[in-house]
């Protein structure tokens, strides 16, 4: 699996309702220490309900400048949330190509929790 297999993919809940798109992948460096850095564990998907483009990440950072670019982009990405990786029930098969919408989506578990995306 490569990062672009997950990025920009639609996200559905268990019932098939559209929740948004994966705009980024969050990693935490808390795995077994490798040679220099700890291993980077895939911790969560960043899901934006309104747009599939991740642009500059203002919705996740505390940067408020330059005005008005930062506030506009932050507003555009409002409602962005994190889904922890264990809450992901199914990932589309990267080799299947473009299938029907419901098979080409990431499906979450029924009891998934949405978290705030701030860094």
């Amino acid at each position: 699996m490569i990062a672009s297999d997950l990025l920009d993919v639609p996200v559905h809940d268990e019932a098939g309702a559209h929740l948004g798109w994966v705009v980024d992948l969050r990693f935490v460096l808390d795995g077994a220490p490798d040679t220099f850095l700890a291993r980077a564990r895939l911790h969560a998907l960043v899901v934006s309900p309104r747009t599939r483009t991740s642009f500059m990440g203002f919705e996740r950072s505390s940067v408020r400048h330059p005005w008005p670019v930062a506030p506009i982009l932050r507003w555009w990405h409002r409602g962005t949330f994190l889904v922890h990786w264990p809450d992901v029930a199914r990932v589309p098969d990267p080799d299947a190509g473009a299938g029907p919408e419901d098979t080409a989506a990431i499906v979450l578990r029924a009891e998934f929790t949405a978290y705030e995306p701030g860094l």
Binding site: A17, R26, V28, L29, F81, T113, Y115, P117, G118
Partner: peptide, 20 residues
Amino acid sequence: RDVSREPEPRQPGRVLDARL
């Protein structure tokens, strides 16, 4: 539909977002 969001717990290591 805006889902209700819970505060993200603090992580035990450095946090990196792939695109950012």
